[in-house]
Design a protein around this nucleic acid. Sequence first.
DNA 1: TATGAATGAGCCTTCATTCAT
DNA 2: AATGAATGAAGGCTCATTCAT
Lengths: 216, 216, 216, 216
Amino acid sequence: MRNTQQNNGDAKDRLIEAAGVIFAEQGYRSATIRKICQRAGAHVGAVNYHFRDKQGLFAAVLEHAHAWSVRKYPPDLGLRNEASAEEKLQAFIRSFLFRILGDGVPDWHGRLIVREIVEHSDALDRMVKNSIQPLYVYLKEIIDELLGNDPAGPDHHEQTFLCAMSVLGQCLNHFTGRNIVSRIKPDSFDPMDIELITDHITRFSLGGIRMIRDRT
Amino acid sequence: MRNTQQNNGDAKDRLIEAAGVIFAEQGYRSATIRKICQRAGAHVGAVNYHFRDKQGLFAAVLEHAHAWSVRKYPPDLGLRNEASAEEKLQAFIRSFLFRILGDGVPDWHGRLIVREIVEHSDALDRMVKNSIQPLYVYLKEIIDELLGNDPAGPDHHEQTFLCAMSVLGQCLNHFTGRNIVSRIKPDSFDPMDIELITDHITRFSLGGIRMIRDRT
Amino acid sequence: MRNTQQNNGDAKDRLIEAAGVIFAEQGYRSATIRKICQRAGAHVGAVNYHFRDKQGLFAAVLEHAHAWSVRKYPPDLGLRNEASAEEKLQAFIRSFLFRILGDGVPDWHGRLIVREIVEHSDALDRMVKNSIQPLYVYLKEIIDELLGNDPAGPDHHEQTFLCAMSVLGQCLNHFTGRNIVSRIKPDSFDPMDIELITDHITRFSLGGIRMIRDRT
Amino acid sequence: MRNTQQNNGDAKDRLIEAAGVIFAEQGYRSATIRKICQRAGAHVGAVNYHFRDKQGLFAAVLEHAHAWSVRKYPPDLGLRNEASAEEKLQAFIRSFLFRILGDGVPDWHGRLIVREIVEHSDALDRMVKNSIQPLYVYLKEIIDELLGNDPAGPDHHEQTFLCAMSVLGQCLNHFTGRNIVSRIKPDSFDPMDIELITDHITRFSLGGIRMIRDRT
DNA sequence: TATGAATGAGCCTTCATTCAT
DNA sequence: AATGAATGAAGGCTCATTCAT
């Protein structure tokens, strides 16, 4: 019985792991169940058995990836409680970049989620509600603080929203645009130097936010 | 005979137009030759006949789209010669946003290219060399001017590159992240209000660039 | 141990009951072991364990259904011993209609058998020998009596056979043709009004048999 | 070009012919596209190309079968204009039996339609409206005449309907119940002797209808 | 030159059955 | 005795591409 559960868990986990890699590399459509099962050392029926169908497997992979991602890189990783808004912003950006540019072993997690953001799917809706929304709310708080907005004021200023988009857009671009980036970047630039990118985006964003604040 | 060639040319054009719409909407894999030919009013063999295969059609569409896009929205659209760097940046951003968010009738051009940037394909390499590179060089000049860098100095500062990425990333995000954006945006925000977005990104970027300049 | 056997027996019975409903509703091919086991609250291996395979389950269901059916609706239900041939015919028809059109809770028995009659399967042969044949013999006796044939005469007159077919055909048609019937029937007609149908078929058949008898 | 059309027509026709046989023999579910294409000497994609999908092929087969059937065996085949109601009834029954019991080369047509009547499918609805309804109306007229009903009277007497069911049921039973029939029939009876069956059902039905008429 | 019928590899999915526990 | 995870053959369907005309 111990063995049964272990086998069960193993097969499911191996399937998720393999599917994550393939989905991240090739996208939902191009990824085939056969390729995934082959990589996982399972049979074609295994996906149907464990996840009902391809969509089910995909949803499971997304969920797993995001859970893992947030657990490993919480948005406020390594911050003191009384950290300044600037420090919070930097921590958020670093955490976000780590998640999408990867460094740990299963480095497909962030890539998969970003691909999903671009591609759109039904599984996205649930993920947004459960995962993205809280992340966005947290970022919005930081930006509101930097903008000097009244935290008890009305929700969803366009201003705050646009600044959040600017921050997120800079980060995401290093993944979504990586094919272009790798072709026009200066030779000295290492696309995986997350600390360097973090510093730049943080500084750039602080300047941007300050400009927005002073202008209004 | 004149008629034949004309029909031929018409068919080719109609195929490119139809393929552009379908590719932009559904991506390369999901787009089928049959759907494209149906929309173009052509027969199923037409694609293979005129473009050898699906890839060939796709390459033709990409080429056409970029040429059309740059012709309609040149990066310095509507600028006086002696415009300031700030004005040039704003014109560049507006032009870029128009291209990827669309407004004219065949508004699929930019979307297609952006999709291509994210998706990666063999046709990308040629396009980068022919189209993206010049655009990037132009943006880099503007930023160098704003940063106060010596135009005769060494090429490809990391600093300039990162600032360019920050500008482009903010713009692209409004397209690539549109699925997420539409879910977390405040109700008052219109994702297609290009002027509003242009103003924000310009201001934010000027603030960011200034911060980078002053800090270094 | 008592408990085990009881559970076993229960599971078998529940499987037969569930399988009967599903087979009757969806036919042999469309019915899946998983659907049956789910309805029976059993595990997927139970069918193979208790009945060897799907065919075995089906045979068991058929057997059970016919036994139950005849027990609940004997062909001479409610008749005095000295009943006339006309009364026997009416009782036979009513009993037969009840069996195939159902009225009690497990009303799938007759429907299943009828479906089997139309569909054909290997399990049919045994059922015919055990169940249909006696029923037919009984009906033939009634008809022979109505035709005035010598009971000690030669078996299997074509005449008697054809009359039996006419009687059975009229009854069966209300089940086998129910999809058509429901579309062309007058609004006032209730396809489940077994007494009405019984009266009609009895009268119609008596007229038919008399005509056959007089003509020969 | 002549050849093209011929090939085209041939492939479609061969597919319909093959599908008809397989559907009639094995039913919709058990019939596989691969079996049908193999018999037709076509490839698996042919069904999709010509009929969109399995359902489309099935609908085409049904349509073809019924059209052929009615054309070859019109309900009033070989009747003088001033034929009596009895003669019309006999012609109707013979025509109907020929259609469902077959005798010509593609003898699967009627069998297929009857199977459809029992099985039910979405394609049935259209067929009922187009084909069965007119047939039923014609039969009803004959029966109304035999019953002595006022032709200008109210439509859809239950009485007429039940008599029509009795006639149709007797005919259909020789097909739907053929598996049983072949096991309990007397040796002397030939299940394909349509003239004999026609005579019996006609006589039996005339007796039945008369009985109904006189009783009311 | 232009057509569209025909091809067939490959996809996702279903399902009865097996087998280790 | 009973379980349910795992198997793999087979099904319907899609689709880019070919080829005779």
